[in-house]
Design a binder for these strands. Structure first.
Lengths: 193, 193, 193, 193
DNA sequence: GTTTAACCGAGACGGTACGTCCAGTCTTCCC
DNA sequence: GGGAAGACTGGACGTACCGTCTCGGTTAAAC
């Protein structure tokens, strides 16, 4: 998508694209979502405002793109051949991603903004969130494949019962999400049906 | 906090206060958080902008006050002498409140904004959210008092495992939260430890 | 006009009146006409805004009253039994009053404001300016009485030919008006018809 | 200074500039200086407030520019080869300009405002007033060139003795300035030294 | 001596305009 | 044709004063 030139009739400037994404990321982390304006992104990136409006409909679309594949990279659960181990590791990684990483800050800002912006909410759900949900299902699907769980297991509600609790702490109560908490959560979950 | 006059050195105008709170509530529901401006609140309430700035630092503070005791009124769990019944009813009421009521819309907007605004997040947590958490604990505390649960039960994580899942649907996935879902959630929960 | 009490149904507070006039005077000299607001006058005078509005229709009316009899005191021409001497001294006193005194600053502010405010212009002309014009005529009237000038002398245009030139320097060109200038003006004037 | 486009990095919009100047002129004449606000100028000119603040520091700067060359056009004395005739015509034109023209209204407002605003006073004196003074000298300079006046004539005080009197009527007494008055003024002046 | 009504301070109120910031659109020249 | 630059309309921001209002406290003539 674009090559290493200033932009001409043969394609857009990859250089400008990257500068905008980085500037948006930096400004969000430094000044928060309120301090993130198209004008400041343009100034910081050394790019004309028009160039931003040409390629992104709004500042949240910049964040969506900046967010990129960070989520997939950070939160694809590994396989240890054991449901409990897989879940424990995955939830711990999720808690870490959401509370400490820059990409996690972008994620929280996007989810927050989605509360005000149904359009963004839809985009987010159909894109990153759906993809992440598919990844969250993986430990269970592997357990089904290993016949550790019945073949007709309804996986989605199980995922929600784990992922939802972590999100609640992150988005609502703001309490820390230590390893002990996620481990205890998985233990209690596995002890049930 | 204000009496029935136009406002003078001995107190503010209760009339103006109520008009502002109602206007903010209405505008949020009608035009969303983005369409909620101090200017429009003032115009709709028939109040001078200065009067708003005199009493509320920002528009979210208006919402916080407008939110008022709606939460407590709507989401105080009744007692049926049975943990399962109490939880089922409470979670269903919570889902209903969050997804269908005007106050629920305000709640979602506030939690969304809190992702961008640590100050608001702190205020929200120390106020309404802490109070609601105390109410969410009630069914469990009653169960302990009835000796249906051990006296040393650690209640907070149990609350989170129910409330968190409902919030996840409301705030993140945007999926509907029907009675079947909350009932199944409670059933699975009670089947565990 | 008022006595030395806090104000009651039998009269206004002389104390408050004086405080307002002094505060207005001070603020004009310190911060200029633009920095002169009813709110600041009230604060500086330790008086309620309502007290000001009760007695003066606007801030220029305060200045008009503060101006008071300063003009008469400063610019009543003395008699030396000689037209030239009277005029020379009077014009020099006028130049001094207009350019150096606090009351002169008030005078300039009022004449300036009168350019924007026909109501003030009328008040000013019918009051202070008419009275001053009468005083400006005195040297000529004495000369007529002494038979130094014909009995049918049309005095008004003569006054304007002197006073107008001084005002032009003060109000328009802003040039200094030294004694040499006013003396030369009188000399040239007397050499004419 | 601006070409026929909507404004870009290579120049401002001449169209917007003219609309602002005309709107300011109209509003001053219609509603007076007090009724002249940046907000109304913007609305009347169909221009954004920011466009005004981008190019003019304040509303008086707009008036200064709107005033433009009107003064020079209206008050450049013609030459009749006779000092008396030149002066009579020039003073009559000046009286007419100051009391009846729209530009004269702007002039009076600016001189009035200059009494409150030393910055404006300086700008006005160094610009329009100095230029006008140079034009006011012309009849005398021509008379010197014709040897009707001595070569070492000190012209400035002579100018002030005529122009000042007209200004006094216009700015201070508010009396009308008919042709008889200015003619008589010149006659008396010429009968002197 | 008590009543009482005008004046006072304080300050909240509905408004208007201020000067600033940013959104999103446009036009121009350069590469 | 993309990009940098920046002027443009438009609208909300938060502030400063305006002139009006209502309140409880003060006070001196009237009762």
């Amino acid at each position: 998508m674009g090559t290493d030139h200033h932009g001409n009739r043969y394609g857009r400037s990859e250089q400008a694209r990257r500068a905008v994404l980085e500037a948006a990321d930096d400004l969000l982390v430094e000044h928060g979502f309120a301090g993130l304006t198209v004008e400041k992104i343009a100034a910081r990136a050394g790019v004309a405002k028009q160039t931003i409006y040409r390629w992104w409909p709004s500042k949240v679309d910049i964040l969506l793109e900046a967010f990129g594949d960070d989520l997939a990279k950070a939160l694809t659960p590994a396989s240890h051949g054991d449901l409990g181990a897989d879940l424990r590791e995955h939830l711990a990684a999720m808690a870490d991603f959401l509370t400490t990483s820059d990409a996690g800050a972008v994620y929280r800002a996007l989810v927050g903004q989605a509360q005000h912006d149904p359009q963004l909410a839809a985009t987010l759900r159909d894109g990153h969130l759906a993809a992440q949900h598919a990844r969250d299902r993986l430990p269970f699907e592997r357990a089904v494949a290993r016949h550790d769980l019945p073949a007709d297991t309804d996986i989605d509600p199980l995922v929600e019962r784990l992922v939802g609790v972590v999100h609640y702490r992150v988005l609502v109560t703001g309490a820390p999400v230590p390893r002990e908490f996620t481990d205890a959560l998985v233990d209690a979950f596995l002890a049930g049906p």
